[in-house]
Amino acid sequence: MNIFRFAGDMTHLISILVLLLKIYATKSCSGISRKTQELYALVFLARYVDIFTEFISVYNTIMKIVFIASTLAIVWCMRGHRVVRRSYDKELDTFRHYFLIAASLVLALLVHEKFTFQEILWAFSIYLEAVAILPQLVLLQRSGNVDNLTGQYVFFLGAYRGLYILNWIYRYFTEPHFSRWIACVSGLVQTALYADFFYYYFLSWKNNAKLKLPA
């Protein structure tokens, strides 16, 4: 464990806590893409299938449980909660995310570390996570003004993988056999997808203006 990876995990945790706060405090999920939440639930379920067979550390196991439980709770809340689901932007959240799932699965069958069930699921979760934010970014562009908590949620979610890239660089130089090129290339693509969001987020912070993504 290094400071970059710990900071990345904490940033990821903060993004989930900010999203939970937004939904709980405002009893609304307007501006949040349910499809992105469903994709992330799939990412965690596919990536953490080894949670019971592969014990890494208490920290690792607890964080896996927190990520799976919180994301499933958010999806359930957006689908099932009487009050929250009424504020879901159903007509705006129309990204065909099934294509993202199919493309990630095909790519995982072609490019993986080992042709085993677990490794293919792991590669699938890595590729899917890289594109999982797309429905959310499209929804932000369509929904005009973005409320603060939603903007902060997306910002922290994008920043966490950027910190992981620093972690991979650090591990590359400090560990002899370290090779994580699938996660690294995918992480670079994932972080690059946030580039324009980060730009407009920085502008809104600098000009102390409301965050607005151009349509």
């Binding site: 995990d9 990821h12 990536r47 592969e54 890494i56 690792n60 992981y164 002899p176 090779s179």
Partner: peptide, 10 residues
């Protein structure tokens, strides 16, 4: 070598 590929990250 295999151990270094163990998925120890979240």
């Amino acid at each position: 070598r295999w151990r270094s590929n163990r998925h120890d990250e979240l």
